[in-house]
Simulated assay, not measured.
Amino acid sequence: MAIELKLLSRSYCHLCHDMEVALAPIAAEFAATVLVIDVDAYPELEARYDELVPVLLHGEVELCHYFLDAPKVREYLTKIR
């Protein structure tokens, strides 16, 4: 089963870029794909996650926001593998 993570992001957000870079090795470790979504392009996402961006999701499960919680993400990905 392929793992797809969603990173809710903004183009001008340095925390978003930092999370994307920090997430890359973990995604590679678990053969996960990361779909980067600009929340400003989707009013419903912007309304829900506006001040929390960046947000890392697997489906509807929020794994972390603001900063990558690498241990939590690794533990979660290990469980669903």
Rank of each mutant, 00 (worst) to 15 (best):
M1W: 11
I3L: 12
I3F: 00
E4P: 05
L5M: 11
L8H: 00
L8Y: 07
L8S: 01
L8V: 06
S9R: 06
S9G: 07
S9P: 07
S9Y: 02
S9D: 09
R10W: 00
S11T: 15
Y12F: 14
C13W: 04
C13G: 13
H14S: 15
H14P: 13
H14Y: 08
L15C: 03
L15G: 03
L15I: 08
C16E: 01
C16P: 01
M19W: 02
M19A: 08
M19C: 06
E20V: 01
E20R: 13
E20T: 09
E20Q: 13
P25M: 12
P25A: 14
P25L: 12
I26P: 01
I26V: 14
I26Q: 03
I26D: 01
A27H: 00
A27N: 04
A28G: 05
E29A: 06
E29D: 08
E29R: 09
F30Y: 08
F30C: 06
F30G: 02
A31V: 06
A31C: 09
A32S: 10
A32I: 05
T33E: 14
V34E: 07
V34H: 02
V34A: 08
V36A: 04
I37M: 05
D38G: 11
D40M: 14
D40Q: 14
A41Q: 15
Y42S: 12
E44D: 15
L45H: 06
E46N: 14
A47P: 02
A47V: 06
A47G: 03
A47M: 12
R48D: 10
Y49H: 07
Y49W: 06
D50P: 04
E51D: 12
E51S: 14
V53Y: 01
P54T: 10
L56I: 08
L56R: 00
L57M: 13
L57E: 01
H58W: 14
G59E: 12
G59N: 10
G59S: 09
G59V: 09
E60I: 02
E60P: 05
E60R: 12
V61N: 10
V61W: 05
L63P: 04
L63R: 06
C64K: 09
Y66P: 04
Y66C: 01
F67C: 09
F67H: 12
L68D: 05
D69S: 07
D69W: 01
A70E: 15
K72M: 10
V73Q: 01
V73T: 03
R74E: 13
R74I: 10
R74V: 13
E75V: 10
E75H: 12
Y76A: 08
T78I: 07
T78Q: 13
T78R: 13
T78D: 11
K79R: 15
K79D: 12
I80C: 09
I80G: 07
I80V: 15
R81A: 11
R81Q: 15
R81F: 05
